[in-house]
């Protein structure tokens, strides 16, 4: 991972905020049920899964998590 690429990737943290706070206006409805669940609920779960995926990607790429990173004891 090059330092420049990592610098850019960090901004992915903002994506969950933008999606979760911004798109609620479009998904605030019950029907049609998706997988038997209200649209609103599916949207919430989608936000959570998207966030988990993004944070997992960041975790995997973050140079601070390498074994020899400076904040290791």
């Amino acid at each position: 991972m090059s330092p420049t690429l990592w610098k850019g990737l960090r901004y992915l943290t903002l994506v969950p905020f933008a999606v979760a706070l911004g798109s609620v206006f479009f998904f605030n409805r019950v029907t049609p049920l998706v997988f038997g669940l209200p649209v609103f609920m599916v949207w919430c779960v989608g936000c959570v899964l998207l966030t988990a995926a993004i944070m997992a990607l960041l975790y995997a790429c973050d140079p601070a998590n390498k074994a020899d990173a400076e904040d290791d004891r």
């Binding site: 943290t13 969950p16 905020f17 979760a20 706070l21 605030n28 019950v30 209200p38 609103f40 609920m41 919430c44 779960v45 936000c47 959570v48 966030t51 988990a52 993004i54 944070m55 960041l58 975790y59």
Partner: peptide
Amino acid sequence: GGSAIYGLVYATLGWCMGYW
């Protein structure tokens, strides 16, 4: 009803912040 799941979203976003 629907508003009950707001805890799901705020805890999730809270942890995005917690990462940093």
